[in-house]
Amino acid sequence: MELSAFIAVLTGGLVLGVLYSLMAFGLALVWTTLGIFNFAHGAFIVLGAYIAWQIGNPDAFGLGFLVSAVVTVIAMFVIGVIFQFLLVKPFERKPNIVLLTVITTLAGATVLINLINVMWGPRSKQIVLPASGDLSLGLFRITANEGLMVLIVTLTLATLGWFLLKTPLGRSMRAVAQNREAAQLMGLNVPLLYAATFGLAAALAGLAGVFIGSIRFMTPNMGDDPLQKALVVVILGGVARFTSPIYAAFLVGIIEAFSTYAVGLYWTPAVLFVLMIAVLVVKPEGLFGRRERSV
């Protein structure tokens, strides 16, 4: 492998890592806080992409990329809150909540995907990003649109980190994730914080959808792959800290890039899943995790 090819593959992996960290962050946030796995996360990503296309694309409302991204994030937050209220909250105090919500979120995902099919049809679409040209730093070369994605995602995750560590609401969300009952006793409004967490996760999924819809062609069924990748990232990295899935996302991105180069696109998912199973056997709490879940 030549150096230039190596750098190109590595760059591709890092860019994927940025995207995967955004996709996995929301999934991890819901898992640590509500203790459930949201199987509609992929559908949220798809819905986000379609909302952004509807608002931003010249063929639809044509309000431009920035407006579409902002509207998507806000709309997905609201949709996430409603989704949680209808499909997760009713089962909160049930002992088998994990299994119940696997079913309800899968059902919700199916409904969302079919709604998207009805509203936008099965024909593929693509979001047009505003930048053009390439950016280069030494041997590293990415498109300007990839650069825009890296910038926005980095800013988003940094803001989220600051929000979780430094603001009262963020602190309360971490507190609820760590100890629901103590949080109630300390006067924290747990139902409100759960709804906010779910909404935030959906908003992040929506933003990820905006970028996926610009990199690939959008179809209503494109959410399965992002959901699988987010699942691999969360399991591989663990959720001990909110940074754990971010490290894992870069690891998965880089492994995927090199695996695609070495064994091709067809076998790459198999490589990732074998790796995930190996981690589950050897270190079930995740590569960057301790045993308990917290934020």
């Binding site: 602190r171 971490r174 100890n179 009952e181 103590a182 917290s294």
Partner: peptide, 26 residues
């Protein structure tokens, strides 16, 4: 206000942040 029999705290929050969370929500 109530305390639990077991030491029920928010483990990854610092001691002062544990109490601060209560103040902020009161």
């Amino acid at each position: 206000a109530r305390t639990f029999q077991r030491e029920s705290v928010f483990p990854s929050l610092s001691a002062v942040d544990n109490v601060l969370t209560t103040v902020e929500n009161s």
